[in-house]
Design a protein around this nucleic acid. Structure first.
Lengths: 189, 189, 189, 189
DNA sequence: TATGAATGAGCCTTCATTCAT
DNA sequence: GATGAATGAAGGCTCATTCAT
């Protein structure tokens, strides 16, 4: 059968949604997404019962991919600086290599359609990273809020860095480095 | 002239729009905005010919208020540290005092309905602040891109700080201080 | 007082309405008409209580002007041919000289907003002409319906003639003549 | 394919549109048309992407039906008189049998919502008839403008005839005959 | 009387979701 | 399961008319 299997369809929907959300935001029409995914309007709803569901799962899947990119080859036994540097570089490189996912992710993160549940699940995917932050970077190791603060700072600063890289792709090395300097000088223990 | 355009009504529309955009984003319906402003659906369009116009003017007015809050009593003759500290404190205090405006501002700043023109006008309102950044904080005083980078970092870091303050209003002093430390340590010349 | 007198305003409204109806049809907005007449939106309604009233009076006034143009210098004592020829030439000349009025008139004549009353009043303005038709041209002098038939034919044929003239103004003499030939050969007693 | 587009529904929409356009003109609301066609408001737009599209296709379909009615059993080998007579009778009979279509057609033909394209397509449908006119009736066989003039005259005169028939349906034979006499005497070669 | 802001019904169109095929 | 036509509730905007000034 030339038709892709179910899992491929699901992936095609998510891919199409990523591209459209990156371009036009969460107001992208489901029928547009279906068309770009190469399926019928109604089929989308057998994979995602609701547009909100699609958006939430999309957000979760992108964030998970990012978390995985960061944690692959994480040098657990290296020093704080190197571990931090590893995370930053992976984060920025992933964003530079996946600009569409990154744009979609930003659109989704400010949307009110992403539920409490989804945000919790995302935190779960970032658990290891958060732990690392709590242990190494937050001012007060016992303080969850402090860790969340630093985690949010990384995200925010990498977003800015990636915006600049998107505007001037040839300066990726410069911006990755500058961004890290600011971050590290700002938050190092 | 018959009834003149009422400045109060215009303000009521902007206020209603601020609240709804903060809550549900730019997809807030004009009829909801009108209802909340206490006027008829059609009246909104005598004040703002288009929903996009309303959104753009709303963005400009919030950003201008913020710029004014920052620049009031700006200690031009003080040292770099004090001037920077002034801006940071004003920015964070304004955000803490106007959480709705701040949320609306964030929604608007990622929206593609804000025009190039409006963004230029906003830059004009922030001209003094941008100049200050370029002269004092950016790595290369001659480099516009570097100044933009630092400016975006301030915004991003204050957004994070304000999110945390919104979640724990009683810790405003702590977060304002922590945020500044990270910022200052990160970008000081 | 530099402001025009009432009668002038009424005329200005009718003039503006003529131009707009000719251009965009009866869906021309009253506020557009008011603007083009140089008056306020509300003022229009002190001269014409309703848009339908305006449209009806406009139709009547144009038709009356046409009737007057036709009947001026009507050669009552001349023969049938000459009297008929006079009417035709006047009709076509008026249309060629007042293309805007003619276009507006045609738009109005197919509109369902022109009331029975107005159509009766128009007939009154054309009474003399109708009488002439009944006496000279209709197949059966006693038959009102027959006269109406011929009257409508004149109008229809002159409309066609005027459309052609509007498309090729330089051929006015040709079309006026051809049109008359068709008409006269068709309906002469 | 799931449910295919239903030819019946399309026809129902066109029928409803015909009736409403005949009654209130092109300002007939799409929601009224949908209601009268027995479908949901939105469904109309799966058959006609735009109100203008609906209007244009309606015009084309009515005009095509008329052209077909005229050309059916056209006596190609008969003399000029008989061929002309055939067309006239068919035209008038069609109008008398389809008064609603005829009224709608008149409304549409003066509307500026009918595009150049549609008018060209209509001309195509009338190509045979136009050829007949050019060859037999127009003063100058080589002259397109002259043929257009005569064509417009037929339409105009039949419209008048049909109006009279609509007012006095019992006199259809009389009016059909009188109309033809006027037309034939007027334009015969 | 003139003005033009205010009103709200109504218009065309979009779109998430359902369901007959 | 896949399809896409059908649905109808909004949505942004227009406009004839009213009425405070």
């Amino acid at each position: 059968m030339a038709r892709p299997l179910s899992e491929e369809k699901r992936a095609a929907i998510l891919r199409a949604a990523t591209e459209l959300v990156a371009t036009v935001g969460t107001s992208a029409a489901t029928s547009q997404i279906a068309k770009r995914a190469g399926i019928a309007d109604g089929t989308l709803f057998t994979y995602f019962p609701t547009k909100d569901d699609l958006l939430n799962q999309l957000y979760l899947s992108i964030k998970s991919a990012l978390a995985e990119a960061i944690m692959t080859d994480y040098p657990s036994r290296a020093g704080v600086f190197e571990r931090t540097r590893h995370c930053w570089d992976r984060l920025v490189n992933w964003g530079a290599e996946h600009p569409t996912q990154h744009k979609a992710m930003r659109q989704l993160s400010v949307s009110d359609r992403i539920s409490r549940n989804t945000r919790d699940a995302v935190n779960l995917a970032f658990q290891d990273i958060n732990t690392m932050i709590r242990d190494n970077l937050s001012r007060d190791a016992a303080d969850d809020e402090s860790a969340a603060f630093v985690g949010a700072l990384i995200t925010a600063m990498s977003d800015v860095t990636l915006d600049c890289i998107a505007a001037h792709p040839e300066k990726i090395d410069l911006y990755r480095e500058s961004g890290f300097q600011v971050f590290w000088n700002g938050v190092r223990p």
